[in-house]
Amino acid sequence: MVEDEFFYGHKACAGCGGSLAVRIALKVLGKRAVAVLPAGCMSAVGFNFPQLCFANNAIISTFAGTASMLTGIEAGLRAKGITDFVAVGFAGDGGTADIGIQALSGAIDRDDDILYICYDNEAYMNTGIQKSSLTPFGAKTTTTPAGKNAHGNLRPKKNMFEIVAAHGIKYAATASIGYLPDYMKKVQRASEIKGTKYIHVIAPCPTGWGIASDESVEIAKEAVDCGLWVLAEYKNGNYSVSIKPKNLPGLQTHIKRQGRFKHLTDDDIAYVESQRDSKWNFINQHWTVTQGGIK
């Protein structure tokens, strides 16, 4: 990690998890990072001419085109004989799992030498908190309101990590801004691999999640510790858990401290717990699970 700051003076809300994910990845990659940011909070808060907050080369792409612009940048720089660079994209959950999934899938299929990082704040935050396919079950957004009949989002969170892995990608990982050393190791590891790499980092948004600005790191750590967000890697056809939670506790406290889940009933929470438990049953049977951090 370098001491230089590459994402500075940005206009993200105080305590923004996404901005921490971008900042830390750039500190791992250093000035050789050539960044692509589609429409979304990180481009909106980073490029407000004349306030330009990326100190490395960075460009805004179309909303759907993060991966295709990365492909173009990688090919272009290579054609110019430049070798010491990492083409890295930072796209939101909507930009990744909804509108950008086709370009991403194509890049993985061609095994383009790019690093794609999805900072997941679990909704379209920049346009005012609309549901994406990565919004979890039960979350209240402006398009999935909470009322008597519908308790927020009715659909489960799309499993982007395994969808990407199912392409047979060179490297995929999940991460959390609550476990920065693990995230940094994964960014470093990905940058040393040739081919397509994907990292999915959970990055709480105080504004959209209904949490205080000083809670985003803590909530991101808690999500891992209570088994809701699984830290994992996929490489050479194998799935492995990076950090295994000590136990699978009740989710009442973790869920209820977030404003977006305030309306959930005990039954709703029991359902989330049962979904989590069956996921871990599967993981324990089929994935490599070692206690402690990644080696």
């Binding site: 003076g9 206009k11 001419f49 306030q51 330009l52 990326f54 100190a55 080369n57």
Partner: peptide
């Protein structure tokens, strides 16, 4: 295109 890391306002 413009200069990278060009800041003109505080937070």
């Amino acid at each position: 295109a413009y200069e990278a890391g060009y800041l003109t306002s505080k937070n």
